[in-house]
Amino acid sequence: MLNRIWLSFILIGIAAAILGGRAEVVTRAVTEGSQTAVETALGLIGTIAFWMGLMRIAEDAGLILLLARIIRPFVRWLFPEVPANHPALGSILLNMSANLLGLGNAATPLGLKAMAQLQELNEEPDTATNSMCTLLAINTSGITLIPTLVIAARAAAGSKNPAEIVGTTIIATCCSTMAALTVDAFCRHWGRKKPGGWR
């Protein structure tokens, strides 16, 4: 599926550039896009290394597993396939908490750690499991309590009350998360089963 989406993005972009008489933007997109990609990844190396280092300490101390056991009764309905004695739920909880608190720097590494732990349970390593899809649905719908960047931008533009959008944002993000989880649950139960995949 990613194959077809990527192909169509590229072809549509090139076609639009040529038809619009500005074929030169193709080269610009290739240069700028690949540069931003590497800069983004390089910018992440430090924080990912730090948080995964800290997570390893917590794991070796048995803290992640302990956390996973404590929260399992509450989130078992979201991730029914993660067994009781597995630390993945602990990492998932930390990832969700970091998202909620707006700690974007910590949320990504914690989510990647959770992904790696879910991958240990995956029998077909190139295909996403149900739990992975659910974790992704939670992360893409952006559960956050304080949109710090937006508040900063509004303050910079001279807003009388930069934080007045916090309430509307929380309600909207809840709707988004619930919709993503509903679609995810629907696809999980009624979509085609894992071999062959839901495309």
Partner: peptide
């Protein structure tokens, strides 16, 4: 983690 088939994750 090297997942190539995202199944319904993108749609959701």
């Amino acid at each position: 983690v090297g997942i190539k088939k995202p199944r319904h994750a993108l749609f959701a």
